[in-house]
Amino acid sequence: MSTPLRTSYPVPVEDLIPAGRRLAAELGEVPSQNRLMKHLRVGKDKAKAVHAALIEERAEDRSETHLHSVPDPDETTTETDGSAAVVDAAAEEFPQVTQPADLVPSRRAGWRGWFPRLARRGGISPASEATTDADAETGDEMRPLRSWPVLLLALPAFVAVWSGWVGLGELTGFGIVHPLPGIADGFTLNSAITLPIGVETYAAFALRVWLSGRVPVRARRFAKRSALSALALGALGQVAYHLLEAAGVTAAPWPITTVVACLPVAVLGMGAALAHLIHTRENGSH
């Protein structure tokens, strides 16, 4: 096994080529630039120059091998082990060009350990041996996070939002209605519940469509704007109700009543428009 060069002075590239040639003969192929840097103890530029010179020599040997005339049967075909290794390696398709580069320690290493280098023609070079980080990334680590805490967070928000919208609806004229007159006169319904169901449900639906990333661009843009608008409108509704309740107001001013009365119609329109955009294919214009 050849020993790496040890010198305290810069070594010219011409003096490094013989050592790189010996290393190539031992490996049976042209070593990679990273291997040359480690073996010759040189920088990236010199290792690149030596690597290019070795590839050029290998290409010349290959062309001479293909153009060589057929030897006479009487001539001996015995060759030294070193020459045979060079000829056999020259007949190959230079695997070192398509093979991924060796792993090198990253400057950002630390708890991450060794990072894979990108190959010259795409892909990521596999690690030569298992690391603690690779072992830690098992199937358990790759499972999606559970979303059940959202339900726990939504429970108190649901109580507060529901009571706020229902209270604001009663202050703006929403109340008990008979939805089935002549059919079920005893059946009553508080129309104030349409506010939290409509506004907050649409906000959650539009937010889901926006963040899913699986809808056309126009639908995603509309979902983003309408979701933020619905959330802002819901917050304003809660603020308005608590201010009116704290002031002891029994009937909301007409501007608030007008806006609240239009909410069911606006929610219906936005929901229908978003559903239409989701199922509409892009025609190339955004």
Rank of each mutant, 00 (worst) to 15 (best):
V161F: 12
E129P: 00
Y202M: 11
A157G: 13
A261Q: 12
L231K: 02
V177E: 12
E200G: 06
N34H: 15
Y241H: 15
A252M: 05
V11C: 10
Y241K: 09
D15E: 14
A206Y: 04
A204T: 00
A130I: 08
F174V: 03
T3D: 15
L244G: 03
F115Q: 13
T257F: 02
E200I: 13
A219C: 05
A136C: 01
G234P: 02
A136M: 09
T78A: 00
R121D: 14
V166R: 12
R41N: 14
T7C: 14
A127Q: 07
M142I: 01
P100Y: 05
R225G: 08
A52D: 14
R62A: 07
V161N: 10
V177W: 03
A160V: 15
V30M: 02
H39E: 12
R281N: 11
T280C: 02
R58T: 01
S106L: 04
I183G: 01
L67H: 10
S285P: 05
Y202K: 06
P116C: 04
A84M: 14
S191M: 09
M142V: 01
V267S: 03
P253K: 09
P126E: 09
H178Y: 04
S106T: 05
P100K: 03
L5T: 05
K48M: 11
G213M: 06
E75D: 11
A157C: 11
P149S: 04
G20F: 04
G186F: 09
S163D: 12
A227H: 00
Y9A: 14
F222I: 00
H279L: 08
P12T: 06
I183D: 07
A240W: 11
V150N: 15
T80Q: 07
L268E: 04
S163Q: 14
G43Y: 07
E75N: 10
V267R: 05
A266D: 08
V215E: 06
V150L: 15
H286S: 14
W254S: 03
I183T: 10
T7S: 15
L243I: 10
A49L: 13
R21L: 01
A119L: 04
T201W: 04
P4W: 05
P10D: 10
L23E: 06
K48R: 13
G284Y: 07
T65K: 06
P18V: 00
P126H: 03
S8K: 13
A101D: 15
G28T: 10
R214V: 01
L151C: 00
T98I: 11
I256K: 06
T98D: 12
S69K: 15
G169M: 05
D61N: 01
T172K: 07
L103C: 06
L54G: 05
R107F: 09
G167P: 09
A219S: 07
